[in-house]
Design a protein around this nucleic acid. Structure first.
Lengths: 195, 195, 195, 195
DNA sequence: GATGAATGAGTCTTCATTCAT
DNA sequence: AATGAATGAAGACTCATTCAT
């Protein structure tokens, strides 16, 4: 009954797992985790209820998997092609800009990450693991502080502030007003980071 | 059975409504809106299930009422005793500091506000109304931009950024590490606002 | 607080008990017994919830009392001024006509009686007692059968058929269509009774 | 666990939907709509609470479905094999007799129909739809009036009276007393219809 | 007598999850 | 692997009734 996308050789038909994750992303950000029935996710994804539980043992595993996959995609995007030999400041700026670009291209994923950041809906184990994948940035921050590029405060201070400011920038770019001045907002926002 | 708060001379025994709001605040921030059964709220508040629905027609009205009351308390606290004849910059700084002080004294309320800001769990009507009560700050920002105290960007830009930075400061003050440097963090954070 | 109808000397202000019965009559016929909360009855009657339970020990006693009072009112109306020395046929016809007249004047009460006739909502004791008050008619029927005015069938047959036909007549008179021919309908209906 | 109705060759094991309708019929007529918990219906039907709501979206849909299915069954039974070329009077008499026969065979369904006729418990849409399925009888009545077989009154008059009289007959046949004279009662009752 | 806040058992309904096919 | 009917525990909310004032 759902076999209409079979046999597509070389096709880029999304697999069932991807369709489920996509539907979950949309519905979780729109209505929240507990307010979204798994039945709605499977319907939206065009699969049966049984199939959802074939790919994810339970609802928790679904949101955890979604969180992890988005965070990993984001981190990969930010680090991509980063040349470690470049000056610290350039690496930082490139990272910020790549993040902003990714965020503008994936507003739904940003909303998801913002909404479920520090949320009791994501199991702690996953939250910890996602955090660890971030080492690269942390190292960069430490270097930047040592080199005087970032102000002399604990790394944690910069981690939090950078997250807050970049989130603010994306929120501003999301609302249409002043979309003309996007570049100005990005520049001003990033300037705040460097003090 | 209802007489336990009788006679307490000079007592400030909370009424049932307050106890319900208090329990809801704690549980909603800890577990989330949908993950918190109304039965748990009433139990925590020490009232019957019927009583909860006597004060709030439904669960939605409960979280809406909570959101509104906290936002109003916060706004009142920030504006309190503000002398309009003072220079704009002083008014702004005072406001930020008062907000931070309120936030440190009421970490649970801050978590609630952060968590349910832009959340589909708060009905739009209430979100709009809460926003309108904020006019005072908006006026102040407009004045500050005109006077060159805040950079020349749309008010909305400053609203968002101030919110993000103040939230970041409170998050940092909440975690114990570097609590010694609280003043330094506050100073650095506020400095970011003024560019 | 509700004392505004006090002291009316010679007034025909309805007492609280009557107001409660009136509200119950309206709401029970409109929505049904179980679908009508006692809180709605007291609100409609303009009394407090406590007052309702002051006059009626519980909801069951309320509908039982209502049923009994309406049935008694109806029976009294039908028997009123009946002169036992009149011929059986005249007595019968008078009774039918008096019932129809009462029914047209009290459509809500008719609906109530029709709706709760044989209903599990009226306690059996009350149903039995109401039935007993009807002896008078039963005697009349027995006489009529003996005199050949009603066909030679069990009394019960005539009791049921008379009830059905009179109810039918009232239903027809209730709907506007053919209101012009009210007398024709009544005549035809009563003719059916006498075969 | 669901295999209990497997393989039964020639078996007419009722499906879950039928079992639910059967239980609802019994309980609604016995205790009334609002007085019957859905939990009791599912228990009586031998299915889980979830299953009931799998077949009927809510309690209202259950009673509506029940009402419609019984009315349709009754109408089908009454019309069955009716030969339109027969004389009007014969068609009418056959219809009445078929209805009475169906009613004696299905006393519970008759009670249900009687009890929920004009009841606010059946949604208006369904009541209207059920009424429309009755066109056949209406046509027959019109013809009978034209042919002088029924007295010269509005069709509605005859519809109501026929319904009342047939209901009365079934009520009488239901009570044991005089069961010997069943045929006499039927004959006398039908005679009333034709005046 | 009158009030209405308080109670909590009981109701309808939802939904994550299972499992026979 | 995929399906979707079936399950039943759990949740939001109602409402008859009580009782302190």
């Amino acid at each position: 009954m759902t076999g209409q996308d079979d046999g597509m050789p070389g096709g880029h038909e999304e697999g069932r797992r991807e369709r489920i994750l996509g539907a979950a992303l949309y519905l979780f950000t729109t209505s929240g985790f507990h307010a979204t029935p798994t039945s709605q996710i499977s319907r939206e994804a065009g699969v049966s209820t049984g199939t959802l539980f074939h790919y994810f043992p339970d609802k928790q595993a679904l949101i955890d998997g979604l969180y992890l996959s988005i965070k990993q995609e984001m981190i990969a995007e930010v680090q991509d092609e980063a040349d470690p030999s470049l000056p610290t400041r350039v690496l930082l700026e490139q990272g910020f800009l790549r993040y902003i670009a990714w965020g503008r291209a994936n507003p739904e994923k940003v909303r998801f990450l913002t909404q479920f950041h520090h949320s009791p809906n994501i199991s702690e184990a996953v939250q910890t693991r996602a955090y660890e994948e971030f080492r690269w940035i942390q190292e960069l921050f430490i270097r930047a502080i040592r080199e005087g590029i970032l102000s002399d405060h604990p790394v944690h201070y910069h981690q939090v502030m950078v997250a807050q400011i970049l989130t603010g920038i994306l929120e501003l770019l999301g609302t249409d007003e002043g979309s003309a001045s996007a570049d100005a907002i990005i520049a001003a926002g990033i300037a705040k980071i460097f003090q």
